[in-house]
Computed example of a mutant assay.
Amino acid sequence: MPSNVEIKARVSDPVLLAQRVAELSQSEGTIIRQRDTFFNCSQGRLKLRDFMNGSGQLIFYKRPDSDGPKLSQYSISPTSDPPSLQVVLADALGVKGQVQKVRQLFLIGQTRVHLDTVEGLGHYMELEVVMRPEQSVEEGQQIAVNLMQQLGVSEENLVTGAYMDLILKGPAPAVPL
């Protein structure tokens, strides 16, 4: 199963962070609109990501609910008909909830940097260090920590869980970078 090391953090100044990320990645990033529907699942998380352009992905992933860099294992299957797949999965499993976001995606080395504006939550950043088969979890965690430091992301801003979990809990105030 593919894996990555990831962190998620609240962002109080998305413009400043976008400037820092653009400088490090030497790009302006790619804008992606997404609607994730989470389904009830006995282990891990199962979501259908609809890119709202006729394409999507069914994603299953497992990761601990802790702040800081953590290992996430995932499986992804593309779909060309997210709406009908959503109906089938909703009928079979039940819907836990939905997350709508606009994501700006940057690549820095082997790390995917997501600057997300999440409906009902605000601004967040995710780092996903895409692990190579020969790399240890510790190497991935060190890459994430180093990039956090370069971007000025403090540990107080780190959050646990998925956006869906945060939505179910209710919004939390942003903490300065």
Rank of each mutant, 00 (worst) to 15 (best):
M148T: 06
M164N: 10
M131F: 00
V129I: 10
A92L: 15
L127I: 01
A144E: 12
L127C: 01
Q100K: 13
V113P: 00
I108Y: 02
R103I: 04
V95E: 15
L127N: 00
R112S: 13
L158F: 04
V118A: 11
V102T: 15
S136N: 04
G140R: 02
Y163F: 15
G122R: 08
L93A: 10
T117N: 12
N146R: 11
D116G: 05
L121A: 06
L115H: 10
G140A: 09
G152M: 09
K101L: 11
K96I: 03
G94C: 10
Q135F: 13
L121R: 02
L121M: 04
Q142Y: 00
V95R: 08
P133G: 07
E155W: 04
V99N: 04
G94A: 11
L151G: 01
Q142C: 07
D116A: 07
G94Y: 08
A92S: 14
L151A: 06
V95N: 08
D116M: 08
I143D: 10
Q100G: 03
V159S: 13
V99T: 05
Q98Y: 01
H114T: 10
A144T: 13
L147E: 01
Q110T: 13
V159W: 03
E128G: 01
Y124G: 01
Q110G: 14
E155T: 14
E128C: 03
Q150W: 04
A92R: 06
L89E: 07
I108R: 01
V99M: 06
N146G: 11
E138V: 10
T117G: 05
G152S: 11
E138D: 15
G140L: 07
